[in-house]
Simulated scan of single mutants.
Amino acid sequence: MGREDRAMIVRLRPETDEQESEALAAALRRAGLDVTLLTLGGTPLLSVNGRAVPPEVEQELLRHPAVEKLLRPDRPYCLAARSSRPDGTVVRVGPVEIGAKQPVIIAGPCTVENRDQLLRIAEAVRDAGASMLRGGAFKPRTSPYSFQGLGERGLELLAEAREETGLPIVTEVLDTEQVELVARYADMLQIGSRNMMNFALLRKVAATGKPVLLKRGFAATIEEWLLAAEYLLAGGNDQVVLCERGVRSFEPATRFMLDLNAVPLVRQLSHLPIIVDPSHGTGLRELVPPMSFAAIAAGAHGIIVEVHTSPEAALVDGRQSIDPTTLASIVRRVRMLRDMVEELVAV
């Protein structure tokens, strides 16, 4: 029987404070058990892994006043499963809440090109109603000769844009050596599609305690995606947002196939919030507005879109970048649509 087959989730009562949760986790560790404690974003959880819980310990747990329920999830992703936190998780990035009622709009350039470009776009997306600013300082490119980003200088510019606009920033981290550097600047760390199954990177990012945006690998199944999220949660970090960004298919007319089936399905399977990236999912700016609306109608907690003041001149991904005027229209309609479909979303 595998490790995941012996896992037990201890769901604590919502009013349990962190001190009491820590004390219970410490007691289980003294009993020789491998315990992960999650206290942010929703109902506090303990995951007990590695070997079967002795019957006498299980009985003590059932009698403990802080314990609401013991669960043995029937899926390999235990901490990420909806059953472990039925009311869902809210991820907080500064003042922004992802997973709450209000849809979150993350917008900005694909890559930080220079100071003037970034500050102009940051101000434009703020004025258009965006909740957060995105921008790549380190860029994973298919060709080694393509623009790879500005590196730490890009991070410095993103921090300056945050100071100017008040928008929290999310940016991608590419490897384990960059984690501490990127975490010093960013409010949220992004794991890109190519790195979704980079387990060493997932573990190191989890250890920062920073909120994480986990993009689905473009050849990954939903279970593989949720197991990648499980690495982050098992590292003690439940501030994880899933991002559907399209999967590779046989169709060459669009960059990827945006899998909107994943949105309601993931909401059934997992308590983690999910957003959608219609920019990468389509590769065509004309399709970004309708797919943004479709994502919200399917139950997404928000969208992440690429915006440029001069899309045709963008160094990276100009064809899928929208302008600020289009963003403002999307923001207005997304918020109206969310109010209309809220009652139709099952969970």
Results as ranks from 00 to 15, higher is better:
1 M>H: 13
2 G>P: 14
6 R>V: 14
9 I>E: 00
15 E>A: 13
23 A>W: 04
26 A>S: 15
27 A>K: 14
29 R>Y: 09
29 R>N: 03
30 R>L: 14
31 A>L: 10
33 L>H: 10
33 L>K: 08
34 D>H: 15
36 T>Y: 12
36 T>S: 12
46 L>V: 09
52 A>E: 15
56 E>R: 14
59 Q>M: 11
60 E>Y: 06
62 L>Y: 03
64 H>M: 00
65 P>M: 08
65 P>C: 03
70 L>G: 01
74 D>N: 13
74 D>M: 07
75 R>N: 02
77 Y>E: 06
77 Y>H: 11
80 A>H: 09
82 R>M: 09
82 R>L: 12
89 T>R: 14
89 T>M: 06
90 V>R: 12
92 R>H: 15
92 R>N: 11
94 G>A: 04
94 G>N: 08
101 K>C: 05
102 Q>G: 08
108 G>H: 01
111 T>I: 06
114 N>L: 05
119 L>D: 09
120 R>P: 02
127 D>H: 13
136 G>R: 02
141 R>K: 04
141 R>Q: 01
142 T>C: 05
143 S>N: 08
145 Y>F: 14
146 S>L: 02
147 F>P: 09
149 G>L: 02
150 L>T: 11
151 G>P: 03
157 L>T: 00
157 L>I: 09
157 L>E: 00
169 I>W: 11
170 V>R: 03
171 T>H: 07
171 T>P: 08
177 E>A: 13
181 L>N: 07
181 L>F: 08
181 L>D: 08
183 A>I: 00
183 A>H: 00
183 A>P: 00
186 A>N: 06
188 M>R: 04
190 Q>F: 05
192 G>Y: 08
194 R>Q: 10
194 R>V: 01
195 N>F: 06
200 A>Y: 11
202 L>V: 05
211 P>N: 08
215 K>C: 02
220 A>R: 10
222 I>Q: 11
224 E>D: 13
225 W>I: 01
227 L>N: 11
228 A>N: 09
230 E>N: 02
231 Y>A: 08
232 L>G: 08
233 L>H: 09
235 G>S: 10
236 G>N: 04
237 N>R: 10
245 R>E: 03
255 R>F: 03
260 L>Q: 10
264 P>S: 02
264 P>D: 02
270 S>V: 07
273 P>A: 02
277 D>Y: 10
278 P>T: 11
279 S>V: 02
282 T>E: 07
283 G>W: 11
283 G>Y: 13
284 L>T: 10
286 E>S: 12
291 M>Y: 15
292 S>A: 15
294 A>K: 02
297 A>T: 05
298 A>I: 03
299 G>K: 08
302 G>E: 00
307 V>K: 07
307 V>N: 06
307 V>D: 04
308 H>S: 06
310 S>W: 10
314 A>S: 14
317 D>M: 07
326 T>Q: 12
329 S>A: 14
330 I>R: 08
339 D>M: 10
342 E>A: 15
344 L>D: 14
344 L>Q: 14
346 A>S: 12
347 V>I: 13
